[in-house]
């Protein structure tokens, strides 16, 4: 009897999918969109992303050191927040904006509430909302016309959504430009194909639940088709609506954030649909041209309620319910 044995509760096997592994999958899935942003908006896009990521990681490390918590930058969650925030910015913003936005996202929206797992809204979106409220002009005016690898035209250009909403002097880009990303918009939202590649990768790796993106995009499609054209039903330009703005980015990468979305499958579907409804409300009848980020933030806030309401029918529960009724 010389062996020293480990005693622990069952199960004695664990999957090799860890938190950092899942987060790394998301980083990998974001790479096509990062690449597309560099292709269409030049190296400037990369500097914005790198600034945002380093600020996020440094803020996380500094804050955790300051409050004597374990430093968790190795779980890649801060990296994701940094990339996502950068993806949500117009390509013409000054570099201090991603830096401040990421620091805010990490420190105020995430770490103050207890770090990964305890934040109640998506940190990247909170950072974006903060920047939007703090420097609205930069966030709504610094658009650049896309060029190929740094051939960026410095004149500002209206986004397709603004055109859809009736911005003067804008024309809608062709459908292929919309798909590829050859249009004005935030860094990471323009190339639908690149985002879709990442999204499909995440679904294939079982990292995200397809119910959220499908519910989200599907709802926007149906509602904009029905109500998209003022004064007439069923004539809206639904294709342009789902392809423009940050819908794909938000639906695949931000609404699916684990911490701030419901845990049950029914709840996730509801989350997707809710995001879609709010997005359409804002886009068609609200004051802003784009509503994806606010719709996700609002649904983040009701996630605990969805979790409470959307409880699955437990195994064998039918019988129990009947018994309780007869009592």
């Amino acid at each position: 009897m010389t062996e020293r044995l480990v005693v622990s509760p069952s199960p004695h096997w664990k999957t090799d999918k860890t938190v950092s592994g899942l987060m790394l999958d998301v980083v990998v899935a974001l790479m096509p969109a990062v690449l597309a942003s560099v292709v269409f908006f030049g190296w400037r896009a990369l500097t914005i992303i790198l600034t945002s990521v380093s600020s996020a990681v440094i803020s996380e490390a500094v804050y955790e050191k300051a409050v004597k918590r374990e430093v968790t930058i190795k779980d890649y969650s801060a990296v994701i927040t940094g990339i996502l925030l950068a993806m949500n910015m117009p390509p013409g913003v000054p570099l201090w904006m991603p830096a401040i936005g990421s620091a805010f996202a990490i420190v105020v929206a995430k770490q103050i509430f207890g770090g990964l797992g305890y934040n109640f809204v998506n940190p990247a979106l909170a950072g974006r909302a903060f920047l939007m409220a703090a420097w609205p002009l930069h966030m709504t005016r610094d658009w650049l016309a896309p060029g190929f690898f740094g051939g960026v035209d410095a004149t500002s250009s209206a986004t397709p959504l603004a055109v859809l909403k009736g911005a003067p002097g804008g024309t809608l880009p062709g459908i292929w430009d919309m798909l590829l990303g050859n249009r004005a918009g935030c860094l990471g939202e323009t190339s639908v194909i690149a985002i879709l590649m990442g999204g499909i990768y995440l679904i294939w790796k079982e990292v995200i639940d397809p119910r959220i993106p499908l519910g989200f995009i599907g709802t926007v499609f149906v509602l904009t088709w029905v109500f998209g054209k003022p004064g007439a039903l069923f004539q809206g330009n639904a294709i342009y609506h789902i392809l423009s703005g940050g819908l794909f980015l938000g639906a695949f990468f931000m609404a699916t954030d684990y911490v701030t979305s419901p845990v049950t499958s029914k709840g996730r579907l509801l989350m997707g649909i809710g995001c879609g409804v709010i997005t359409v409300l804002i886009r068609l009848w609200g004051g802003y041209p784009e509503g994806v980020s606010y719709s996700i933030l609002l649904m983040n806030l009701v996630t605990p309620l969805i979790d409470r309401a959307m409880v699955p029918r437990y195994y064998g529960w039918k019988h129990e319910a009947r018994k309780e009724k007869t009592l």
Partner: peptide
């Protein structure tokens, strides 16, 4: 496996995989 437990990130995998559909 002696990994230290980390905070729950609410990924919902336990919910999806419970054969009794518990939470």
């Amino acid at each position: 496996n002696l990994d230290k437990p980390l905070p729950c990130i609410r990924c919902g995998r336990c919910v999806d995989s419970c054969p009794l559909r518990l939470l």
